[in-house]
Simulated scan of single mutants.
Amino acid sequence: MLPIPERVRTLAASAAVARMTLDGVPSPARGGVDGRGRPVLLVRPGERLHALDDEAVVAVHLTATRRLGEVEHPRGLIEVQGWAQPVPAAEARAAAVAVAAASPDEALFEALERYGEPGAPRLLRLDVAQVAYLTGQESGILDADDYLDANPDPLAETAERVLAHVNEAHRAQLAGGVSRRLGEGSRDGAGEVWLWELDRFGATVHVDGSLIRFPWPVPAHTGQCLETALRGLLCTC
C-alpha cells in the first residue's frame, strides 16, 4: 500500500471540492487542487469569502470517488484546514487551470481578465495547516509538512487508465483471477468483482462490498511493470 501521505496526496489530486467551512458554517464551494496539493477556490461576488481582505481560517472538504457500474462510491474524504489567501497575480493562471480541471467555469476567465478589480470573481488558495483524512479503514491527521512534501503516486495516471479498461472489458477475468488467489474455485458472482485501486505496490479489489488487497511480489516502477503485475492477477491458469 502507498505510504499514507502519498496516498492522501494521490486521492487529493483527483478529488472534487465538495464544500468549504468558514467559522464553523459549511457552504457550497467550487474549486480544485493545485500541483502542490493546495485547494484553490473560485469565489464569486456576494459569496462569504469574496470580501476577504487578508486571510480567513477555512476547511475545504474534498471527496474522491470511484464509479462501479452505475453507482458512485466514496474512496476517500479529505479535509484540508488552513488559511484562505488571495492567489498572487503571477500564479493566477496556473491556479485557474487547477480549478478548471475539476470544475470548469466561465467565471475563471473573468477572474483572470479582471484580476484585482472590485466586483470580479476571485481565486483563493489555502495555506495548509493540517489535513484530516478518511480512506477505507484508515483515518488520521497529517501535518502540513508531511502532506505538502509528499507527491502523488507517479503511476497514478497509468493506473487509472488501466483500471478503467479492466472494469469495462475484463471483469470476468478479474473475477476468475481473484477466485484462484482466494482458493474458491470458479466464481458465479463475477458481476460483483471490480478493480477498486491500483498502484505500484498492488491492487485492491472490490468483492461483494468488501475490499481485498493483493500486493505485488515487487513494487512496479513503470507503467509497463504495473500492467505486467496486473496480468498476473487476471490470469486464471
Score class of each variant (00 low, 15 high):
residue 19 R to I: 04
residue 187 R to C: 04
residue 215 P to I: 10
residue 120 A to S: 14
residue 218 V to S: 15
residue 234 L to M: 10
residue 57 V to Q: 13
residue 174 L to A: 06
residue 12 A to C: 08
residue 62 L to M: 03
residue 177 G to Y: 10
residue 225 C to Y: 07
residue 183 G to H: 09
residue 4 I to A: 08
residue 71 V to E: 13
residue 207 V to D: 13
residue 147 Y to V: 02
residue 38 R to Q: 05
residue 8 V to P: 04
residue 100 A to M: 03
residue 10 T to L: 00
residue 19 R to Q: 09
residue 118 P to K: 01
residue 110 E to T: 14
residue 34 D to S: 08
residue 161 R to A: 15
residue 216 W to F: 15
residue 91 E to Y: 01
residue 212 I to R: 14
residue 21 T to K: 07
residue 90 A to I: 01
residue 185 G to M: 08
residue 82 G to Y: 02
residue 194 W to M: 09
residue 218 V to K: 14
residue 161 R to S: 15
residue 58 V to L: 13
residue 179 S to G: 15
residue 127 D to G: 13
residue 103 S to H: 10
residue 228 T to I: 09
residue 55 E to H: 12
residue 143 D to T: 11
residue 94 A to F: 02
residue 198 L to N: 07
residue 96 A to G: 15
residue 133 Y to F: 14
residue 91 E to D: 14
residue 173 Q to K: 10
residue 191 G to C: 05
residue 125 R to G: 10
residue 193 V to W: 08
residue 60 V to D: 08
residue 192 E to G: 12
residue 131 V to L: 09
residue 123 L to Y: 05
residue 4 I to F: 03
residue 158 T to Q: 11
residue 223 G to C: 12
residue 169 A to H: 15
residue 18 A to D: 00
residue 142 L to N: 03
residue 142 L to A: 03
residue 79 E to C: 14
residue 12 A to L: 11
residue 145 D to N: 00
residue 44 R to W: 10
residue 202 G to R: 11
residue 179 S to W: 04
residue 33 V to T: 07
residue 119 G to H: 03
residue 132 A to Q: 14
residue 102 A to Y: 01
residue 103 S to Y: 05
residue 76 G to D: 03
residue 203 A to Y: 00
residue 130 Q to M: 07
residue 42 L to E: 07
residue 184 E to C: 05
residue 31 G to I: 00
residue 89 A to L: 06
residue 68 L to N: 12
residue 210 S to H: 06
residue 141 I to S: 11
residue 113 E to Q: 12
residue 205 V to L: 06
residue 174 L to K: 11
residue 88 P to N: 12
residue 49 L to F: 11
residue 36 R to D: 08
residue 97 V to K: 07
residue 133 Y to S: 01
residue 187 R to F: 12
residue 95 A to W: 07
residue 111 A to F: 00
residue 24 G to F: 09
residue 149 D to C: 01
residue 113 E to G: 00
residue 128 V to N: 09
residue 9 R to F: 04
residue 183 G to Y: 08
residue 18 A to V: 04
residue 191 G to A: 13
residue 232 G to M: 07
residue 29 A to K: 08
residue 110 E to C: 02
